[in-house]
Structure formats: structure tokens, C-alpha cells
Design a protein around this nucleic acid. Sequence first.
DNA 1: TGTTAGCACTCAGGGAGATAGAGTGCTAAC
DNA 2: GTTAGCACTCTATCTCCCTGAGTGCTAACA
Lengths: 346, 346
Amino acid sequence: MDLNERKLQILQAIIADFISTGEPVGSRTLSKNPEIEVSAATIRNEMADLEEMGYLTHPHTSAGRIPSDKAYRLYVDEFMDTSDLPDDRKEAIREKLSETRTELDATIEHAAELLSEMTNLTSFAITPQVNENKLKYIQFLPVDERTVVLMLVSEKGKVLNKAIRLSVPYTEENLELMSKVMTHNYMGKTISSIMARDIIKDFTNDMSSLAGLAKDVAPSFMKTLQKMLDVDLYMNGYTNVFDLPEYSQDPVKSRNFLQLLENKSHLKDVIVNRDEGLVITIGDENSEDMQDVSLITADYKVNGKLVGKLGVIGPKRMKYGEISSVIKYISENISETFEVKGETDD
Amino acid sequence: MDLNERKLQILQAIIADFISTGEPVGSRTLSKNPEIEVSAATIRNEMADLEEMGYLTHPHTSAGRIPSDKAYRLYVDEFMDTSDLPDDRKEAIREKLSETRTELDATIEHAAELLSEMTNLTSFAITPQVNENKLKYIQFLPVDERTVVLMLVSEKGKVLNKAIRLSVPYTEENLELMSKVMTHNYMGKTISSIMARDIIKDFTNDMSSLAGLAKDVAPSFMKTLQKMLDVDLYMNGYTNVFDLPEYSQDPVKSRNFLQLLENKSHLKDVIVNRDEGLVITIGDENSEDMQDVSLITADYKVNGKLVGKLGVIGPKRMKYGEISSVIKYISENISETFEVKGETDD
DNA sequence: TGTTAGCACTCAGGGAGATAGAGTGCTAAC
DNA sequence: GTTAGCACTCTATCTCCCTGAGTGCTAACA
């Protein structure tokens, strides 16, 4: 069987209708569409064909048709409206993002906020992932007699710190020695190479008097290194699903959705591992726990290199075209703002 | 009318029953309770009295009684079981919290996790609020030709940093000069006193050549100072409400609850402003948007001074006694761990 | 041969009515 | 003061029925 012109037209009409209403679409409703000039009976025949081809399903015999994941995929690949955003929206995005153009983190946070406001979905954004990052500074700051702050700075400008409570008070000399040993051992090394070493051994080899201090510091040091490789996740609008009738009327559905969002580390994983560029995954194209939703993500670049991501998660019946345009515009705007030689103009 | 022995007994039984089942309690159900030796008719008379006194209400004529906020208050003040936690729970808490006893932040995070696991409610915890904090170090770290990291360290050991993207490349000298000017102007001053000043003016007065740099740096500096005064909020288990039938069956109820939690800054405000000690607020004792829930919080102390808070939010029919004990034990455990002269013993 | 009108059929959703059951309040007797 | 008994109330649930939206199939039409 062939996906001829008329079948495509009908399929598109069904998808458009279902995306905006969430209700199964029947042949009579469709026949009222001025674009479609055949009768309801003909539409029914076509719909039966489309169902056989896997583009449509029924919730039950006497209900209208709803698009399958395959139909959404076809729609996204072939027919989605990818036209530009209206100027006022572009303006709004530029304005909000330029407020914070001196700070990457705040910009990312704002981007996520914008995204959920403009799409009425749940949005997320992650800070850039840095793989080959090297340690630039290691410093201990004394706080009180038994507390020090360990501060690590990477070449890429990420600064992390951790307050460490020691089991015995430190001495100035010990702390200084510790600083020196660590600087000597680790400065300029990549974070992953440091993490592969036996930290405790490094200390005890070099200076057995540091063993006590090292025992307190080592675990925090390791954890902080790990965090250096980690990304931050911003999320917004997780109660937006309640605006959709199929979620607000079905507690199981909304519960599942929210539980998906509560598992932050899993979500982070999923986002980090998505391809670059504008990526849309629909229903069964996602991992097992996300078969009921669609994700749209895009990446942004900092200095043309470091790659972060942002996007939305929501029901499969989302306005793919419009939302993609918003995500694309926001991510491009961030990339431009944080370009190496970009000149800001105001 | 008097709250005699029998009335109290009946009221207590109703509260206990309603807390565990969530269903209105009728006179016949109560008469089966072996503790209560009067007939259902007598119970009905007493219930009518209790209703008149404001301790009970009806959802409708032919339904059983449910406790009013006033009843919960009486219960919490007078009859709540405040006995100690069972040893295995204490053990579990001690163990989990001791994993991270060198790091305050991680401990607080774990405490919130524990709390939601043990109570099946939504838990939260905030890091200590520091009011009279002074700036200890101010430092700029160069990242690339147009990005620097501003790092601030307070006397209390809080370290914050912010990457700042400059509108024009900085020069080594300018950056150094900036560092010196800021150190000279602000080091050792309290954060609130710095925030009251006109930062931009400080720079231009001292060194007009810094004006360009200052324009980029000043807003980030202010924001970072503000953040110094801010607390961090950890939250866990926000989907736990779905385990309660009255929430999972009522989308409006669960939606309202989750929207309450999504407004993080408001929640932070509420928590920060609660009194010290174990504080329980029930329904209408809360602010307008929280009339339908109860909160239990307690504070923990760091070095016997800095005060942070943690607690839970949930339906009014919560197990006040048990939950209070958990919160109390966790907060005391944190306070002990971070006591000035406390010795850890392993 | 493709299109359409017509018709029988299916099924979910909603409303009406009946019923059960949990509960109340009141009264009269103990 | 306590209790048994009874009439009453109200919700929740079940059934039944109907409506309406939708389908698939068939036969006739262009």
C-alpha cells in the first residue's frame, strides 16, 4: 500500500487535531475540514488503510483514531512547521537572556525558565560537560580550628569547594604541607587521571605525618573531583502537566511522570547522552521508562567547544514544530552570547 | 461544657483512627474499640458535644467525624506519643549520617533523604543562615581572555564563585588592581554593610581606569554577596503524596500540593522564619496557601551557634508523634556531630 | 475503479433510579 | 446518665438504558 497524497493529508490533519485537543479524531470531524474534500466514508477507508500501515490506532472500536509513534515520527521528519519564531518571542528571549550575559550559570537557569514559560512544558538544562579538564589550583582555607575548606579550580574555570570537618585540629604547618603535596602531585593533571590514583597512598608515601589529615581529606577530595566532571541540572515547570486534561484526570499518569522527574540523576544521564543538534525522540524511541513521553533537546556551545544541553519533556502530543523553534532559538542565542570572539552590541 | 475524661478518650480514638485511615470515623466503629466501653449511642452524644466545642466536623450529615485543626492541636500538645525512637531506627540514622560527618552540606542532604524515607512524606532541609558574616577573601581567577571567576570566601567558611564574562578582554594589571581595590574596600566588612554601599562608585572613586571592568563585575559581585546570605534548600520525596488515597484520587489536591513545593523561594522563606526548637504547625496555623497541610520542623546547630532547619510537609493527618521523634533525633544527631568540642568516636 | 451513501453494529459516557450501608439525631425506657 | 431503637439522611455503587460518536461493510453511482 502506498502513502499517497490524500492519505498524507488525512494523516496530517489527524495529527494536528489530536495534538491540539488530545481527543481521538473521527471521520466526520475530519470531513468538516475544508482542506479535505472527500466524504466521511472515504476518509474511513483511508483511515483503515493508515491503521493497517501502522500510523494510526484506536483506543476502542467506536472511538476516533489517534496517531501512533510512527506517525509522529513521519510528521516530525517531513511535515513539521519549522518556520521562524515570531519577532516578539525572539525579542523576549533575547531580552531575558541578555540580562545575565556575563554569567553562564545564570543564563542557563534563565533559559530553562523561559523554555517552560513559552512551551508550558517541563524544561531542563544542563551546564556544559567538561571531559578533559585539568586541575589548576588546589587550596585549603582555614575556617575554624577543626574545619577547613578545600577549594579546587579547573582550567575551564569551574570552582568547587567543600567544607571538611577534621577529626583532630589541624596545624598551620600540616595544612600548608598538605597543600604543597597536593599541588605538586595533582596540579595540571587531568581530573580523570587523578581519580584513577590511590590518593591515600600518595600522601603517605610523601609524608607519613600527614596520614591523619589525609584520611579526613581524601574522601572529600575524591568526591569533589567527581563533582568536577558532573553537570548541574536546572529544571522548571514540573507541575505544568496538570494543565493537560489527560494528565490531570489520570492520577497514575501524572504520578508516573513526576516520579520520572524526581529521579534527577537518571534524567541527567539521559540528557547528557543525547546527540548534539536538535534531537527529537518520541515515545518508544526513548528508554523504557519514558515510552509515554517525548523529549526535544538541543545543545549550546560555550567558546565554540564546551557543550551543554537544554530541552523539554512532555506528552507525545506536543507542538513539535513550535517548541523546536523555541529551543533552537534559545540554544543558538546562548551559543552566540558565549562565543569566543563574539562582540556584544549594547 | 467540659472536656471530661470520656470525651477526651473518644476524641483521641477518633484522631488516631483518622490519622491512620483517612476515613471519617463513625460511632459504631468506635464502639468496637475495646478501650471504649460505652455504647454507640453514648458515643454519638459525646461526638455531638465535641463537634459543638469545635473539635470535630462532618463532611456531610451521614458521614463519620473528622478531627478539626483545633483537635490536632490539642492532640499534639497533650496526648502525642513522644517516646523514643526504636533502636534500629536510631542506628540507621546514625549510620547514614556518620558516612558524611566531615562535610556539613552532604550531611544535610542525607538528612533530608533519610527524613523522607522514614516518614514517607516530603522532607526539606536548609543550610544554616549566617547573618553577621564577614568577607574574608576576595579573589579573581583568570579563565580565558574574556572570562574571570570571582571568588568570595566568608569568615564562616562559605565559599562562592561566579564566572564572569567580560565585555572586553581584561589585562593582568587591571585584574590585579581590581582585586586590590576590592580587598582594600571590603575585606573584613560584614556582607550586609557592603551591600548597602554604592559599589560602582567605590571603584570609580578609587580608580577611574577600572570603570569598564567594574561595570561588568559589579552586578555579579552584588548577586554573589546576596547569595552569601542565602540558604540552600534540599528537598526529597515530593511524589510521596501520591501514596495517600485522598491525594492520589484528587488531582486538584495533589496539584495544589506540588505547586506549593515548586515555589522554592517561598518555601525557603517559610522555613527560615520558623521558630527554633521542634515546631509543629497545623492547617490554619500556617500561612494562607498552606492551610491544608501541616509542617513539622526542628533546628540543628553548627558549632553550637549557626542554625539550620529541617522538617517535613504533609497532610494534616500525619503521625505527629513518630515523625517528631525522627526529626528530633536527626537534628540532634547533626548538632552533636558538628559541635565545637565534640569528639567523634571511631 | 474509485467514491459515496446508507445501514447495522459497537462501545464509552452519562443520567436516572434503586439499593445498600454507614452514619446521624432524637426519644423513650432503663 | 446510659442505652436501645427507630426514623431519617446522605453517599456510593450498581444496574439499566439511552445517546452519540464512531466504525466497517455493502451496494450503488459516476
